[in-house]
Amino acid sequence: MATANIEVSETPLVLYALRRADDALILGHRLSEWCGHAPMLEEDMALSNIALDLIGQARELYTYAAKTEGKDNDEDKLAYLRDVRQYRNLLLVEQPNGDFAQTLVRQFFYSAFADLYWRAMMTSRDATLAAIAAKSEKESAYHLRHASEWIIRLGDGTDESHRRAQAAIDQLWAFTGEMFAVDDGERGLIHAGIAVDPGTLRGRWLTTLSGVIGEATLTLPQTDWMQQGGRSGRHSEHLGHLLSELQSMQRTFPGQTW
């Protein structure tokens, strides 16, 4: 018997925490897929480290979401017993690892945003979110440095690495717009000083990107079309496969302690 999905009462604050938790878990999971298979041992270590930071962030955010919801959900139920339509992460973070360039460009786009976002969130009126932000900001700053250095190496490395890095940028660019979108529920949190408006960070995010991409001799796409849907559970086909693997134990052996 497979375990049924849990129900979550998605009040604006619960939904807010879930979205950020899902971003962190799914990206952490993707990075953990590299463990043992990276281009060099130093990157096995680095990618695992970043994955651990992100999984740690996810755990705090899930725990906060569960506490805020006030039912009998917990971090594991939220992670393991929601189906693809209940996941709220950005489409960007669920994109497959692809080659090393795709993984690092995905990380670069996300970390450049997360670094600004968590720094801004440190002044949240919600003490728990402010504390999570303070920890996440420190980690994101390191993640951004790591990814930036690689974008420059790949872009300004060999012809092949340049071509692969540019292809990754072109492929993933359309998933970046979603980071800055806000719905009505979240707008309420922004007005209350609990969340920050990500739209206000886009200018600085672009400045970070332009600096690194320029030094890497790469270019940002000119297209404006942005893919959306992750925040409301309309995902790419990739997420279902990720979840079937992530959740396999909890679905196969329901209700047990591990």
Partner: peptide, 12 residues
């Protein structure tokens, strides 16, 4: 699979 990455790092 990682050869091109290591080459890129060395080249840079």
């Amino acid at each position: 699979d990682g050869a091109w990455v290591r080459e890129a790092a060395a080249s840079y």
